[in-house]
Design a protein around this nucleic acid. Structure first.
Length: 260
DNA sequence: ATGTCATATCTAATATGA
């Protein structure tokens, strides 16, 4: 089973690219971020026609997440606990059942947090603590559980072409990386790093300043696996070629293959 | 390099977020 995450930066603008990539990659489960539309505007029919079931948690203009699945989606939940005032559409979770087992998948769009000297950074750190608490609860069930999405976290220096450029950025500040390590400390496995410790594995290249042409990228889109999921990890792939397609997202898909 | 892209709004230039 292939489980993927992709920040598409507007589903309306990226629908043709998404359909092309689904046809090419044939993932079983896909978490999408930054769909930037309300539920009613999501191109559900086109994606269902491609063979996917759809669960959407949208919002006008900003944020918005969705899960696509070749299998029926059950037990869909949206929003993280811990802040009833939080209106951002950043989290969706669903369960799929296959012959080989049950998978619980959480798709997330973690707050960017910049500028880091504003309340936006406090919101990011608070959101990461809410995610940690949620993951701790899910891990207690000792099931196949995957958190996939745009974490807006550069875990380590080798995850950036120019780490020095990011030292004061909310994606790379020590507090951000400490919160990331607290997620790992629960017992979750970074799927990419479980398979490949090479430097220069990037998932995002800014639209500005020729970042793509210079391979000036960062790794911020991740899949975190429960022990039961990590036991089944076969491999990972970053579909970097998608960044060279016409009118691309600034992020590319990341795919984990589980033996399921 | 002040470098891009997508959204919304008093449809044209600007504000916002990333």
């Amino acid at each position: 089973m292939q489980i993927a995450t992709w920040n598409v930066n507007s589903i309306k603008t990226r629908l043709e690219l998404l359909l092309r990539w689904l046809d090419e990659a044939k993932p079983d489960l896909v978490c999408l971020q930054e769909i930037k539309c309300v539920d009613e505007a999501f191109p559900r029919a086109e994606i269902e026609a491609a063979g996917y079931n759809v669960a959407v948690h949208g919002q006008k203009s900003y944020n918005g997440v969705a899960i696509l699945s070749r299998h029926p989606l059950e037990d869909v939940h949206v929003r993280l606990g811990g802040d009833e005032q939080d209106e951002h559409a950043r989290f969706i979770e669903a369960v799929v059942s296959t012959e080989a087992g049950v998978v619980r998948l959480g798709g997330l769009y973690l707050p960017n947090g910049n500028p880091a000297d504003t309340p936006k950074y406090g919101y990011k750190l608070a959101w990461m603590e809410r995610l940690r608490a949620h993951a701790a609860e899910r891990l207690a069930h000792e099931e196949i559980f995957v958190l996939a999405g745009d974490f807006n976290v550069i875990p380590a220096a080798e995850d950036a072409k120019r780490p020095a450029a990011w030292v004061h950025d909310a994606l790379f500040l020590p507090e951000t990386r400490a919160a990331w390590r607290r997620l790992l400390a629960l017992g979750m496995t970074d799927a990419v790093r479980a398979c490949d410790d090479a430097a220069g594995l990037f998932t995002f290249w800014d639209y500005q300043a020729g970042a793509w042409q210079k391979n000036d990228g960062i790794r911020i889109d991740h899949l975190l696996l429960s022990p039961q999921a990590a036991d089944r990890l076969v491999g990972v792939r970053i579909d970097k070629h998608v960044r060279a397609w016409e009118r691309p997202s600034d992020h590319v898909p990341v795919v984990a293959e589980l033996a399921l």
